[in-house]
Each structure stands twice: as C-alpha cells, then as structure tokens.
C-alpha cells in the first residue's frame, strides 16, 4: 500500500485523473493497433464483452474495418473506373525533398513545429502521429506519410 508522503492538492488530483484518463485511452489505442496488425476484430470483442465503446475512441478500428470491407473482392464484375488522383499539398510540388519543419509550420506555431519536427525524427511511425495528432485532421497525416515516401 502506498503512503501519502506529499500533500496532494486539488490541482494535482485533477491532473492525475486526467493522466489516468489519457493512459486508459492510450492503452486502448495500443490494443486497437495490435488487433489491426494481428487481424483481430476489436469491435466484435468489445461487443461480446458488452464494453461501452462510446467511452473510447474507436476510429482506428472503424477505419480498419471500413478499409477491410472496401478491399474485399466482390464476385460481380467491377466497372472500370478511373483511379482518383489525390492532389499533393503545394509543398510537394517543389523539386527537392521538403523539409519536415515546412509541413509542421503550415499547421502549428514556430515553437510547436520545431518541437514536433524533433519528435518526428525520433518516431516516423504514422500510427504514432495518428494517435497524437488526430486533432489536426488527416491532411497532416497524409502529408507526413507522403513525406516518408518522398524521403525514401
């Protein structure tokens, strides 16, 4: 049993609860990513366990499910359609490889884009960015993924 050795004020208490919340959701994100890699139906398991999925962010599993459903080949003959071309962001129109800080500076302040580009060089895993930068829409993720391809 842990003993209270420092006075814990209400601010720390609030931050601790918030930290627990973040930890909880990060664990679930990890579980969803793991399920995605191992091809395990995460949402189906939650349904079986009657887990309240509305309390967690299930966009990873839902996105994977959607992608999986669209990839399943149908028995009927498919109509030939032109592939949709995604317009690259203007920074990728340059002839040279773009700087990663250029990408971030389009979304964040100078101070934050510097911190993020430092973090980026440490972790190039797109899922990491998916989890962390989910608030900044998919545009950034797409730009980052394209950057990884571009810089290869």
């Amino acid at each position: 049993m842990l003993i209270l050795d420092l006075p814990v004020d209400s601010r720390n208490e609030e931050r601790f609860l918030r930290g627990c919340n973040i930890l909880y959701h990060l664990i679930f994100n990890e579980l969803q990513l793991c399920c995605m890699r191992a091809k395990i139906p995460f949402l189906k398991i939650c349904e079986q366990l009657q887990y309240p999925v509305e309390t967690i962010n299930t966009s990873i599993s839902e996105g994977y499910k959607k992608r999986k459903n669209t990839k399943t080949p149908s028995t009927s003959k498919k109509k030939k359609t032109r592939p949709v071309r995604i317009q690259p962001s203007p920074i990728f129109n340059k002839s040279k490889t773009p700087e990663i800080s250029d990408i971030f500076s389009g979304y964040f302040s100078e101070e934050h884009s510097k911190k993020l580009s430092d973090l980026f060089y440490k972790r190039k895993n797109p899922y990491f960015w998916y989890v962390y930068l989910i608030d900044y829409k998919f545009i950034l993720i797409n730009d980052l993924c394209r950057y990884i391809d571009f810089a290869k």
């Binding site: 918030r18 909880y24 366990l49 309390t55």
Partner: peptide, 23 residues
Amino acid sequence: ITWYISELMRSLNHKPITADPIL
C-alpha cells in the same frame, strides 16, 4: 485481447472515464 479488455473494464468503476480525453 479479450482478457486485456476485460481486465481494463474493471478499472472503469474506479475512475471517471470521459470520452476522447486525447483530443
């Protein structure tokens, strides 16, 4: 994975979990 989720379910009663705290 089922075991992991069921273990995590236990903690739901201890702390108020709000939706999307990461956002």
